[in-house]
Nucleic acid binder design. Structure first.
Length: 490
RNA sequence: CGGGGUGUAGCGCAGUCCGGUUAGCGCACCUGGUUUGGGACCAGGGGGUCGCAGGUUCGAAUCCUGCCACCCCGACCA
């Protein structure tokens, strides 16, 4: 049906690219690895931002803003941190250009910076350097700050939304007096992310802890939410890090306790990025285009009038105006597509491509019967609804869609989650079925590395509240106390 | 960064092997008209540094060299 979208079965990556471009979400820019987020795509991101921002504030955080540039020396203060990020940093070395006959402008060699500046790949260093000045006493704690920002990581290979050189995100950075409080904060924010993913994105996630090799550079523990995409690959959708006292040590951030003792501060950081857009696209969309959960759709209901001539259009507009008003009062975003040059069939296809959850079609015969046609994007089902209870039906339908796409994604994930007990079975499932593979692991970095080499699968996480179960490592046969989640990942 | 591929109008492509009138086609766009319940039709029209920069040649989209971007597979990667 959809004209220009490559079917998933043919080429999943191409399908993804087609959706992003054809649904007007984003495109490549003139700058390598950087994308232009188009208005329709940005509108979805804005909805995500607003909801998350409210959730952060609800849990006691405030927004602040720190500089884009980080002095080079800051990065090296935490040993693991620099190691993790050094290879993908953009560096500012000069502060001035000058005119040049041949090239127009050149970098002025005389304007070299004393100390180079790094374009932030993440802001722990500059923020903890600031926290040093803000925190003196236990009364200054906890410090609960979030920043909305752009960051740059010079990735080798980029993909729209999933991995770009520059991306938008939020990063929370908190400081606490005790280890327990910091761990609680880390887990609380992971819960916020999981709630957002499931309640708003309609995307089921596994909450868990990363293994040592997948841990954030500088963290003691990295918690994450992992989701499963339609091609059977896993996507890390958000992370929350317990930083221990690592950054406090690196930047000498201490506070005086009630007992007048100097102690190092405990820290957390947590973030989600525009990668969530990629997750959202891949979680629900089909071969006809984007499928958006109603809670994140910039347009929740589109009305397509079917008419001949200006007079009929006027009649339709008058006819639906009370319904539009009613929906707006319920907080539902409605758009009337009154473009005159396009035929209804074209509009139907276009709004499907753009993932609008509910479409209303109204023509002459609906006017006569006091009804309208309501179509839902997720299942493509259509129904005739009497004008009388249209508002009620549509409002309920939006809730249904929100739930239905969650259920669909959830049963897909269940179907694609397999417990395995032998190495052969492990390889076979990864090769032919994909998805999450639940298996025993001996707990060593070496084994994890070897499994990755042989199967490309990594340990996505050790689920929180994992049940204890003794077994044997899938690869080495050594004793294991619990199963972990393996998958090929983005 | 390694291997493979692609780059011609907003999008999708032909032409390139074998250099030679004015670079074509479909969709989209503009004007007029007829249409409108699942991607309309007719007529007319506009739009091109052939990815960029050099080179070979009387002449380059076409041949040569370098570079850039994108796609696929690796490597790398919260």
């Amino acid at each position: 049906m959809a004209k220009d979208i490559t079917p998933r079965s043919e080429d999943y990556s191409q399908w993804y690219n087609d959706i992003v471009k054809k649904a007007d979400l984003a495109e490549h820019s003139a700058v390598r690895g950087c994308m232009v987020i188009k208005p329709y795509g940005y509108a979805i991101w804005e909805k995500m931002q607003r909801i998350l921002d409210d959730m952060f504030k609800e849990t006691g955080h405030m927004n602040a803003y720190f500089p884009l540039f980080i002095p080079k020396s800051y990065l090296s203060k935490e040993a693991n941190h620099v190691e993790g990020f050094a290879k993908e940093c953009a560096v500012v070395t000069h502060y001035r250009l000058k005119a040049d006959k041949e090239e127009g402008v050149i970098v002025d060699p005389e304007a070299k910076l004393e100390e180079e500046l790094i374009v932030r790949p993440t802001s722990e260093t500059v923020i903890w350097n600031t926290y040093k000045n803000w925190i003196k006493s236990y009364r200054d704690l906890p410090l609960l700050v979030n920043q909305w920002a752009n960051v740059v990581r010079w990735e080798m290979r980029t993909r729209l939304f999933l991995r770009t050189a520059e991306f938008l995100w939020q990063e929370g950075h908190t400081a606490h007096a005790t280890k327990q409080e910091a761990v609680e904060e880390t887990e609380k924010m992971l819960d916020v992310y999981a709630d957002f993913a499931e309640s708003y994105m309609s995307m089921p996630v596994i909450k868990g802890v990363k293994t040592e090799s997948e841990r954030f550079a500088g963290a003691v523990d990295t918690y994450c939410i992992e989701s499963l995409m339609q091609d059977g690959k896993a996507l890390q959708a958000g992370t929350s890090h317990f930083l221990g006292q690592n950054f406090a040590k690196a930047f000498d951030v201490k506070f005086l306790t009630k007992e007048n003792q100097q102690e190092l501060v405990w820290g957390t950081s947590w973030g989600v990025s525009t990668r969530l857009m990629g997750a959202l696209i891949m979680a629900h969309s089909d071969d006809d285009g984007l499928v958006l959960p109603p809670k994140l759709a910039p347009i929740q209901v589109v009305i397509v009038p079917i008419y001949k001539g200006e007079e009929q259009l006027q009649k339709i507009e008058t006819y639906i105006s009370p319904l539009k008003k009613e929906l707006k009062e319920k907080g539902i975003t409605v758009k009337l597509d009154d473009r005159d040059t396009l035929r209804p069939g074209f509009k139907f296809a276009e709004w499907e491509l753009k993932g609008v959850p509910v479409r209303i079609a109204i023509g002459q015969r609906d006017l006569e019967n006091q009804q309208l046609e309501v179509a839902r994007r997720d299942t493509k089902e259509k129904q005739s609804v009497s004008m009388q209870n249209a508002g009620e039906v549509i409002s309920k339908l939006l809730d249904d869609i929100q739930k239905n796409i969650f259920e669909k994604a959830n049963s897909f994930r269940e179907e694609k989650t397999t417990e395995v007990n032998s190495w052969d079975e492990f390889k076979e499932i990864l090769e032919n079925k994909g998805g999450f593979v639940i298996a025993h692991w001996d707990g060593t970095v070496e084994t994890e590395e070897k499994i990755k080499e042989e199967t490309k699968a990594t340990i996505r996480c050790i689920p929180l509240n994992n049940k204890e179960e003794s077994g044997k490592c899938i690869l080495t046969g050594k004793p294991s106390k619990q199963r972990v989640v393996f998958a090929k990942a983005y």
